[in-house]
């Protein structure tokens, strides 16, 4: 297929997935802000969320004070923030529009309808009356788009590039979310009682709460949360599952210049496939996740170079 077409499909998938993950991340942050804690530590959490996305400077320019209202407005509906949910869904739709002919009619319609509905949202109302319903809507739309994609598209390269984009983005986002929660937990050692809620919210944000209960049948223990979200192959949002999917997609789209990218993906996958959570924790969770995100970034660069930027 055309390199440019692959590029648009790949980024459409990435931005759709990014919007969904942002909704998940913001939702868990919002839920946690409802857990009793000092205002200072609450705002510290929001600051961490901005830092996680390298958005402190952009935020400071137009908002100033870091608090729940400002951060939500900035991250949910600010069209000037290229990382807001609003902007992500706009870019996803623009990418889809550029190649709408390569996707099924149902798929294009589900992406376009998402954008049309987004523009009809009353954000003042949403911000004033509770954002969770909106986050649910974002997750639902992402699920609809994904479902229509897998349910209607031919299993050819177009679908492979869409899946690849989604997996790269999801792996990165799971790692970020985990890293941020871990960072906050480490700072809040004295507020131990809230840990249960924090880890619980984290699991819920990744649709993993019930999965955890089912898999471990036990109390929520940080090491197991980490294991579930990093190493479990059968957990669809885990780092392992993402790496596994990336390897398979790369095999399907391989060309004459993609061997090195395939090798890097294989190395990443092997680390997760044969890793043990004790070793991960011994290395330091933050260090491990940072290394993972670096490798994902490198894979993204490789994919662009090998397939998307035409020679």
């Amino acid at each position: 297929m055309l390199s440019r077409t692959a590029d648009h499909l790949y980024w459409m998938a990435r931005y759709t997935e990014r919007a969904e993950n942002l909704a998940r991340l913001l939702d868990v942050s919002y839920q946690m802000s409802l857990v009793p804690q000092s205002l200072a530590s609450q705002n510290e959490n929001w600051r961490a969320l901005l830092a996680l996305n390298s958005l402190e400077d952009a935020f400071a320019v137009s908002y100033g004070e870091v608090n729940v209202e400002n951060v939500l407005r900035f991250m949910v509906c600010d069209p000037a923030n290229p990382s807001s949910i609003y902007s992500c869904l706009r870019v996803a739709r623009e990418n889809a529009h550029a190649v709408r002919g390569t996707m099924t009619a149902e798929m294009w319609e589900s992406v376009n309808a998402t954008w049309i509905e987004l523009r009809q949202q009353d954000f003042e109302h949403i911000l004033a009356r509770g954002v969770s319903e909106f986050f649910d809507w974002v997750k639902l739309r992402s699920a609809v788009i994904r479902g229509v994609t897998f349910g209607t598209m031919l299993k050819d390269d177009a679908l492979h590039f869409i899946r690849l984009g989604g997996l790269i983005e999801r792996g990165d986002n799971t790692a970020r979310t985990l890293d941020m929660q871990y960072h906050i937990l480490r700072q809040n050692d004295d507020e131990g009682a809230s840990d249960f809620y924090r880890w619980g919210s984290l699991l819920r944000s990744l649709s993993a709460f019930q999965v955890y209960r089912k898999v471990y049948r036990d109390a929520i223990v940080p090491a197991r949360v980490a294991e579930l979200l990093i190493l479990r192959m059968d957990m669809p949002r885990s780092l392992h599952a993402c790496a596994d999917g990336i390897v398979r997609m790369l095999q399907l789209i391989a060309n004459d210049s993609s061997a090195e990218t395939e090798r890097l993906a294989g190395v990443l996958h092997a680390r997760l496939h044969f890793g043990r959570i004790e070793e991960v924790l011994a290395e330091g969770l933050h260090e491990y996740l940072t290394d993972y995100m670096d490798r994902i970034y490198e894979l993204g660069e490789g994919i662009s170079r090998d397939f998307l930027i035409a020679s």
Partner: peptide, 12 residues
């Protein structure tokens, strides 16, 4: 190239 037209694809 060589008075022939090509498109850039993911497979070259």
């Amino acid at each position: 190239s060589n008075e022939q037209v090509f498109m850039r694809t993911t497979q070259g």
